[in-house]
Write a protein that binds this DNA or RNA. Structure first.
Lengths: 238, 238
DNA sequence: CGAGTATTTGAAGATCATCAACTGTCGTGG
DNA sequence: CCACGACAGTTGATGATCTTCAAATACTCG
């Protein structure tokens, strides 16, 4: 099923519709590519492929096998797990430069769905193993990335296990700000929410209504300056 | 500070007090050692060292640098993170065969403390890197382990984000059972709790009192057959 | 413009937390 | 070996936070 890397890039002007060369890749410096020497890189450039993932489409589904490493080149994803009775926990979000599928698995531990029309670059693990023979740095990078993800998961655990609703919401805004926030004037930051409220609630372990009320209260007392559906504006942190 | 690997093994008869040979190592098959060929293995056996960690002593502390990979040979550990105001979240437990310190870090993301007098085998990362040059399988093993930890963390996230107190307690018993539980007669399982109630509560994101009440209720309705301080007996799962 | 979805707001209720007292267990020393 | 003190764990009563159910409002897309 995965072979639509020739589709048009739609509204994402950052990403052309043809297999553009890695030289122009936005996330190259942040991805495993940074570890490769020129010869290896040429190899990667041949085996690498791109794929568009339409909004709300799954790149990977819980329980399905997965063969490739994906790097988010543009757009964003929601990672989630389901309980048998349908309760859903969002375990994380992916933005440009993030990886999924660090290892080939029989059965994916979670589902990854696009929050918006997105583009990923992917490497089948069998090629990756070949590359790694000459470039051991690649595996180090995967180990490092695995650790980063693990640490994020631990922060998430602390959030869910110990924080109040208000703290959760503030932590969430902070994390997103650090990842994709931008200055908006000298004193404020604009923090985009590429995901709907329900996803945020499911990430924070809160009900939709509680999230909504908490955001409203933060707006009330000025810790959120502007509250919109798809972004908030906050005072620049210290 | 870490060089007391000659101390006596105290009450743990499984682990002699002298740097015993890896041939007799209980967890050898489950650890990275399983990936080594005889020559590499000889090298490991030379660089490897053991260390005792007394009950409640930290093997690794949040914020402190860490240079080594540790493998739990005997005993068990609690992993935890602190919030600035002192709230503590237990993020996991380690048992025989488990690893910590998969990567050398400036500042450890969590604290690891012994739940009982324990023994670890450790490899400084600089030696590990040498070994990995000839045995790429070692790194694959580390990647795999990192993934396993990550998946456990995700299950923990689901537990904290979506489950009720009762479900949390049952899930906890189930996880511990799978890890260190044992048959106790034909119909029942004995599940040890090497950690105090407070640790369990901090792992489950519940208050001590709630945990206690929930356990009592499960005992009440027969889903726990015997409830002791340091273990429970449950009916054998399906 | 209108249907369907996303988000907000309101009121009532449940689960879990808090505060407090009590009981059981372990280890130490007389 | 028993007694005592300290800590671990349990139980009870009350309360807060967050959830649930319900309905209104805002937004998006065809």
């Amino acid at each position: 099923m995965p072979d639509d890397h020739t589709k048009s890039a739609e509204k994402h002007c950052v990403a052309p519709n043809r297999p553009m060369t890695c030289d122009l890749c936005d996330v190259r410096e942040r991805s495993i590519c940074a570890d490769l020497n020129p010869r290896e890189f040429a190899h990667v450039e041949k085996t690498m492929a791109r794929r568009h993932v339409a909004k709300n489409k799954a790149l990977m589904a819980e329980g399905e096998p997965n063969e490739s490493l994906y790097i988010v080149v543009d757009g964003s994803f929601r990672l989630s797990k389901m309980l048998e009775d349908g309760r859903r926990q969002v375990t994380g979000f992916l933005f440009r430069g993030d990886f999924i599928g660090v290892r080939s698995t029989q059965s994916s531990a979670y589902t990854a769905e696009a929050l918006e029309d997105s583009i990923v670059c992917f490497f089948p693990h069998r090629y990756l193993d070949e590359i790694a023979i000459d470039s051991p740095g690649v595996k180090d990078r995967l180990i490092a990335r695995g650790q980063t993800e693990y640490h994020k998961a631990q922060d998430h655990i602390v959030l869910l296990g110990k924080k109040t609703a208000e703290e959760r919401v503030l932590s969430f805004i902070e994390v997103i700000d650090k990842t994709i926030g931008a200055d908006e004037g000298a004193q404020t930051r604009a923090v985009p929410f590429p995901m709907p409220r329900q996803d945020v609630a499911d990430y924070l372990g809160l009900r939709l209504e509680t999230l909504s009320r908490t955001l409203a209260a933060l707006k009330q007392d000025g810790r959120i300056l502007e509250l919109q559906r798809r972004f908030v504006v906050i005072p620049k942190p210290k």
